[in-house]
Design a protein around this nucleic acid. Structure first.
Length: 644
RNA sequence: GCGCCCGUAGCUCAGUUGGAUAGAGCGUCUGGCUACGAACCAGAAGGUCGGGUGUUCGAAUCACUCCGGGCGCACCA
């Protein structure tokens, strides 16, 4: 509702400017710092001042003078030295919210592809991966809630060295002892991978095992290839299970093995070669390689050969970037080829994740052909992402290059204190830092499932301390939702390019700006409504009992009005977060919304209210807050427990 | 050396793309449960927005520069 009015006001003033000065501009609106200034502020006069060579204040007055009435606006006034402030018609606003004024949610644009998670299928997921998945999944929810069609892809690199190293571990039990105790497969691989990696340090000759294994995997047969398949398949299932705990799901898993077997790369290579995006280097350190010149992806890349990027190695194998270019081309439907698809996994709610396969299937399924592609990838890979986009550009796919977005984010590191808690040895230098980088290769880091388990136990303690009478299963269910709320909110409250220094005790906190705080507000809103039923009363028919006049009367109360206004901004908050590509905006809004509700909760006793109209109004406010809280939490992928 | 990111309250971070008196959470200090649940609320203290120069009606935000920190710059993924 709020952004409908924002747009309406911008449009009205835009045409007013057009008729007065003959200038077509996009009128910006903002929200005043102080509530006393009104609900919407328009700084347009400042922008016009330069062009018109007039004082902003005078322009604002001219704009105001002949402006006609705008639906839903009670008053326009000038303020400061050129602001136009808007006061909304409160009765109109409330009545429209009550009727659930349709947010214009018409499906828009083409399909958007979001690729996220992309964890190497060779070990358990850790907190760094969680940031990727939660960021990606939340962005998907944001897009879907604003009417976009989205396809979620999780790329599986099942033929890389990481998998090979774990296979090496399994095939050399005489060196890499498997632990006696039972533990999940992905945990076992975590240790195995670290062990193999560190073994290479002192036994360079062992790298030959890795090379052999890689060759076998590419060839696609033999014991090593079989083991590689087994490892990556089992790990992918483990990852899907971990992500499911966090309400993160996927539509399709494109796999590297099919990119190889279906010769996607060969097709891409032909394109790149024909259009001269890459060339065969005949000299220098890259002699014998197919390279992309540095000038393609770096500004002023002058030194030929010095900064060019190898796409095909001198031994004829393709690099990661090369495969990624082929994959990116496929995402846009530019390769002229497609995968076959088979059902890979069914979620507990019945939805199905599909995987690519190289064998034709009876059941036809189509993926790819997006009009816009978001790749959720660590900012450390921005250089490689630039090369991929440059590849598209060099092929002449300008539009698709522009529509390829590296949705980057900074890494998750650990605070030194948390390292100590986890028993990780630190150098004196590291102890002085504010954070320490995790390393999957060394086996340092916090496993995702361990963290979720820890959070769940913490939440269970809290729940049990308040609801010992409830059955354990029910308490566990609530605790799981709280844990997920805490974790998702924690990963989302930071802006994307801020490094998260992960602190265990901070993450385990459920007070202040946290997911559980927001969940708690929603629970309390529900409780009021439930208590109403328990008292033998029922929810009034709001639209019958609350006339526009009644709404205006009640909203004349400044406190109520400000609270309702804040609650009504959910749509515009998500909208803004989508355009700025910043999920943290939604998280921040959710927190503010919860704060507003807390204020409401303490300020206005609902059930004991004696004035009938006011009580009806307060019940409506409660229900509206509940709906907005649930809606916003849903965008964040956070559920509301029955009690907490 | 080159490129990207960061520097805002004691700590961790926001700041609607250049706007009105710079905001939260944590921590500290004062108060508030006989419950629409205190995982909460009310209040207080706490700032030279890393330093400097510039751009203009107006700068935490843009440009230049210096200082401090991080991450990239493979025939690894």
């Amino acid at each position: 509702m709020f952004h409908v009015l924002e747009k309406r006001i911008a449009a009205a003033l835009g045409s007013r400017i057009q008729e007065l000065y003959g200038i077509g501009t996009l009128v910006q609106t903002e929200q005043p710092k102080q509530a006393s200034f009104g609900e919407i502020a328009v700084p347009a006069a400042f922008q016009l001042a330069r062009e018109l060579k007039k004082a902003p204040r005078a322009i604002a007055q001219e704009l105001l003078a002949g402006a006609g009435a705008i639906e839903g606006v009670a008053a326009l006034e000038t303020a400061g030295n050129g602001y136009l402030n808007v006061r909304l018609d409160r009765g109109y606003y409330g009545a429209n919210l009550l009727e659930g004024a349709q947010e214009d949610c018409a499906a828009r644009g083409g399909k958007i592809i979001v690729e996220h998670t992309n964890i190497n299928p060779n070990k358990a997921a850790h907190i760094g991966h969680l940031r990727n998945a939660i960021l990606g999944d939340t962005f998907v929810r944001m897009l879907r809630s604003t009417g976009h069609q989205v396809e979620v892809q999780n790329y599986i690199d099942n033929t890389g060295v990481q998998v090979a190293d774990v296979v090496v571990g399994f095939l050399h039990p005489e060196i890499f002892l498997l632990p006696e105790k039972e533990q999940p497969f992905d945990y076992l691989c975590w240790d195995l991978y670290a062990a193999v990696s560190s073994y290479y340090e002192d036994h360079k000759e062992a790298l030959e095992w890795r090379r052999n294994t890689l060759h076998a995997i590419e060839a696609g047969h033999g014991a090593q290839a079989e083991k590689a398949h087994e490892v990556s398949d089992r790990i992918v299932h483990a990852h899907l299970a971990t992500m499911w705990r966090l309400n993160v799901t996927y539509d399709v898993l494109p796999r590297e093995s099919e990119i190889l077997h279906l010769k996607f790369w060969a097709t891409a290579f032909e394109l790149l070669r024909q259009r001269k995006a890459i060339y065969l280097e005949t000299d220098g350190k890259n002699k014998g390689c197919w390279v992309m010149p540095g000038s393609a992806f770096r500004e002023g890349g002058g030194d030929e050969g010095e900064d060019s990027k190898v796409i095909v190695r001198s031994n004829g194998t393709v690099t990661y970037v090369g495969k990624d270019i082929a994959y990116q081309l496929w995402k846009f439907g530019l390769l002229g080829k497609d995968f076959h698809y088979r059902q890979w996994h069914t979620y507990p709610d019945g939805r199905v994740v599909w995987s690519t396969t190289d064998e034709p299937q009876e059941e036809l399924q189509r993926y790819g052909r997006g009009s816009k592609v978001y790749n959720v990838i660590d900012s450390r890979q921005s250089y490689l992402q630039d090369v991929v986009v440059a590849g598209l550009r060099a092929l002449g796919f300008e539009r698709q290059a522009d529509a390829s977005i590296h949705f980057s984010y900074e890494m998750v590191a650990l605070t030194p204190r948390t390292c100590v808690d986890l028993g990780i040895q630190l150098s004196d230098e590291d102890k002085q830092r504010t954070y320490v980088e995790v390393s999957g290769r060394k086996g340092l880091g916090v496993k995702a499932d361990d963290l979720i388990d820890k959070l769940t136990e913490r939440a269970l303690e809290e729940v049990t301390s308040r609801h010992a009478e409830e059955p354990e299963e029910s308490r566990r269910e609530a605790a799981a939702k709280i844990a997920v709320g805490a974790l998702r909110y924690f990963m989302l409250k930071y802006t994307r390019n801020s490094v998260i220094a992960f602190d265990l005790s901070e993450a385990l906190s459920f007070e202040g700006e946290t997911g559980p705080y927001v969940q708690y507000s929603a629970v309390r809103a529900r409780n009021i409504l439930r208590k109403l039923e328990e008292r033998g009363e029922s929810l009034p028919d709001f639209s019958a009992e609350l006339s526009r006049e009644a709404m205006a009367r009640q909203l004349d109360n400044e406190g109520c009005w400000q609270l309702l206004l804040a609650a009504s901004k959910a749509g515009s908050a998500v909208e803004r977060a989508v355009t700025s590509g910043e999920p943290s905006h939604v998280a921040r809004y959710a927190f503010q919304l919860a704060q507003s509700f807390s204020n409401f909760y303490h300020e206005y006793p609902v059930l004991t209210e004696t004035d009938r109209e006011k009580k009806t109004f307060l019940l409506w406010m409660t229900d509206y807050f509940r709906a907005q809280l649930e809606r916003t939490l849903d965008v964040l992928g956070i559920q509301v427990p029955e009690y907490m």
